[in-house]
Design a protein around this nucleic acid. Structure first.
Lengths: 232, 232
DNA sequence: CGTGCACTTGAGGCACGTCAACGTTCGTGG
DNA sequence: CCACGAACGTTGACGTGCCTCAAGTGCACG
């Protein structure tokens, strides 16, 4: 059973704008679920039976070539929507990177509810269009940018998304320093690089005084302007 | 002034499912426009003032890095939808590759009409979700596949999309042999390669007896199975 | 019959991948 | 508390696939 009235992403997720009554109905359809880091919610190729809202945490959407090369095709944050309504098969897996909490719906239930609530479909449409924009921007990065540019762009995007996604008030400090929800391997999978190349580029950016790497998972942006220049 | 009642993509575009009355209203909002090869309808970064349906022809969606490296982020065919409803700026340019005919709407008009017609928004949502799936699949190709795999995948996709997009009945022959709407440079821009690499890979596929290149722009698939194997 | 453009082909270099060794952090149990 | 091992990350040496630069080749145009 969900608890929409106490939901912390209530005003940012696609549920925003629903009336109290509608929310009560949706409440009976959804249920909360906790995911541990590494746990998957949806598998590539499986029939699409679930959709969900992210309440807390960061998850990856990943897809692989037949011979097993993985590519992360998207990253979702709190208030984002997961899953593929109105279609048979999931094109990608969904896996938690951090501990995460999601609000899960059976796709059939959700599809029906959505079809009866144009306002919800409109929100979903806006979100999907935004996701498409972001995905297309990422395509340019994947195919046309160098490793150095990729890593720089990634760090900048991270610093932005982690702030807006989180629940804390965006502070100066959190824009400068943040914890990566990704391992080096996962950064590599996002950027279409190898783990070694990512590591080398990080080290170089550090050597050039652009960033600092206090611990394995944390990043501090020393010279944001320089980083933006490098990102291209 | 549009002419929905005689529109050849009427049953496949997002307009499908509208009642006669609704179509009449939409009719007054849209107007037809012809585009020559190379002519642009929308420019990257411009305010999003237009949306459109493709009636005939093939168009590219392209985006560039700041220093001018271009990447084609999508290709649209008849019945596909173009433009960015509900948002300020266009993330990519839209340019005709072949002679094309489109059905254009002022975005403000379209946004209003869509908001009042949930059925239309639903169609648009389904289309956008499908486009997102396709785009994500393409990301894997861009970042994880070799030049050879890229070209093979591209040729297969072309042979499929040109048939379903066109107005002729899908024949055996048209699956085997087709005219590329792309120059070598544009193929390169789609695949994130250089023109020379594309040319070399095409020549190699020909040498291996997998395809034939009767003229510059036409392709014949000799051994489809082999091509699928190579595509990975 | 030139002139121009799209495409092909070749030679060489470099960025990134591959393979391998090493260092660091962290969890687990003695 | 330390000992140990596994997982993760870094660094180095080397190979190669694709890009770059440059020189043809063929087709379409006046």
């Amino acid at each position: 059973m969900a608890a929409c009235d106490t939901c912390i992403v209530r005003n940012r997720a696609i549920c925003a704008g629903l009336t109290g009554d509608e929310l009560a109905v949706l409440n009976t359809l959804g249920r909360r679920r906790n995911l541990e880091p590494g746990e998957s919610l949806i598998w590539e190729g499986d029939e699409s039976v679930l959709v969900a809202n992210v309440i807390e945490g960061v998850l990856k959407l990943s897809s692989s070539t037949e011979d097993g090369r993985e590519q992360i095709v998207g990253v979702v944050y709190p208030a984002d929507f997961i899953g593929r309504p109105f279609a048979g098969a999931a094109g990608h897996s969904v896996t938690a990177l951090t501990a995460a909490r999601v609000c899960v719906f059976a796709r059939a239930d959700f599809d029906r509810f959505a079809s009866e609530h144009p306002g919800l479909e409109h929100k979903l449409l806006e979100r999907t269009l935004g996701e498409l924009d972001r995905t297309r921007k990422w395509m340019v990065l994947l195919s046309r940018k160098s490793a150095r540019e990729k890593v720089a762009t990634f760090l900048l995007e991270m610093s932005d998304r982690l702030v807006e996604g989180g629940c804390e008030t965006p502070s100066e400090a959190s824009l400068r320093r943040f914890e990566l929800p990704f391992s080096r391997q996962q950064v590599a999978d996002v950027l279409g690089l190898t783990i070694e190349t990512v590591s080398r580029q990080m080290t170089m950016l550090k050597r050039d005084g652009v960033i600092e790497l206090p611990t394995r998972r944390s990043v501090e942006i020393i010279d944001r302007t320089a980083l933006e220049d490098i990102a291209g």
